[in-house]
C-alpha cells in the first residue's frame, strides 16, 4: 500500500487552474523528485499534501489520513508529514535548539529535558551539535536550512516534504544541505522533493516526476528518464537545465 496516494487532484486559484488532475503513488522509502518549470504546479501539489493548500476535487491520502476534507485532523496529519521550506523559516527569537524543541513540547507535550535530548540528537544528525544555542541570525543559510530539517525530524515524520530547499542558498552552501538529505534517504526516510538539482534527483531519487502545465507529464526511474526522456517537453527541459 502506498504511503501517500494522490488521485486526480484538481486545484484552482480563482480562474487559474494550477493542478489539472494529478495522480501519484508514493511508497514507503521512496525518494520522489518533482521537477518542472516554475508555474507547473510542483509546489502547490506539495503544499496540498500537508494541507497548507486546499484543493477542489480528487483525493489525497497520506499515512491513512484523508487530506482536504472538512473533518481532516490536520494536527494528526502534520505530525506524520513534515515540511521544509525554501526560505528556511526558522523562528528568529529562538535558538537552534529551541526551534527544534518547540513542536515536541507544545504539540507532543514532551518535557523540556526530553525535548532538549531530541534536539541534541537531530542537530547532531545534521552536523550542528556545536550550534545548539546559536540564534538563526548567527548561522549561515546552509546551517539554517539544516536546523530547519532537524526541526522537522524532531517530530519523527513518516514523510518529509522539501519545497526547493536549496534554491535560496548560495551555490557553495547547497551541498551541505543535499548531503543531509542524501543521508536521510539512505536511512529509509520517505522524501518528496520539489527541486532544481537535477544531478541530485538522478543520483538520489528513486522516482522522478516531471510536471508540466498542472499535470504529471512523465514519471519513472530517474536514471532511465534522464537518459531517455520520452516527451519533447522533458527533452527540452532537461536540455535547458542539465
Amino acid at each position: 500500500m502506498s504511503l501517500v496516494s494522490i488521485r486526480d487532484v484538481r486545484k484552482s486559484f480563482g480562474q487559474n487552474e494550477v493542478l489539472k488532475g494529478v495522480s501519484l503513488d508514493i511508497a514507503k522509502g521512496d525518494v520522489v523528485a518533482i521537477i518542472g518549470r516554475s508555474g507547473s504546479g510542483k509546489s502547490t501539489l506539495l503544499r496540498c499534501i500537508n494541507g497548507l493548500e486546499t484543493y477542489q476535487s480528487g483525493s489525497i491520502v497520506a499515512d491513512g489520513i484523508e487530506v482536504g476534507g472538512a473533518t481532516t485532523n490536520l494536527r494528526e496529519l502534520r505530525r506524520h508529514v513534515g515540511m521544509v521550506f525554501q526560505q528556511f523559516n526558522l523562528f528568529p527569537h529562538l535558538t537552534a535548539a529551541e526551534n527544534v524543541m518547540l513542536a515536541p513540547t507544545v504539540v507532543n507535550k514532551v518535557s523540556k529535558a526530553e525535548a532538549r535530548a531530541i534536539a541534541a540528537e537531530v542537530l547532531a544528525k545534521v552536523g550542528l551539535s556545536e550550534k545548539m544555542d546559536a540564534y538563526p541570525s548567527e548561522l549561515s543559510g546552509g546551517q539554517q536550512q539544516r536546523v530547519a530539517i532537524a526541526r522537522s525530524l524532531a517530530m519523527r515524520p513518516k514523510v518529509l516534504l522539501c519545497d526547493e530547499i536549496t534554491s535560496a542558498l548560495d551555490p557553495e552552501l547547497v551541498n551541505e544541505v543535499l548531503r543531509v538529505v542524501e543521508q536521510l534517504a539512505r536511512e529509509g526516510m520517505t522524501l518528496i522533493l520539489v527541486t532544481h538539482e537535477m544531478r541530485f534527483a538522478r543520483d538520489v531519487g528513486t522516482k522522478l516526476v516531471f510536471m508540466h502545465h498542472g499535470k504529471v507529464h512523465e514519471e519513472g526511474v530517474p536514471k532511465e528518464v534522464f537518459a531517455a526522456p520520452r516527451t519533447p517537453e522533458l527533452q527540452q527541459f532537461v536540455g535547458q537545465v542539465g
Partner: peptide, 22 residues
C-alpha cells in the same frame, strides 16, 4: 513573515499555538 506561520502549522501546531509561541 507568512512562512513562519506555515512552518509552525507544518509542525502540527494549531494556529493559536502558532500565534502564542511564534
Amino acid at each position: 513573515p507568512k512562512g513562519h506561520i506555515e512552518a509552525g502549522l507544518s509542525l502540527a501546531m494549531t494556529k493559536w499555538e502558532v500565534l502564542r509561541h511564534i
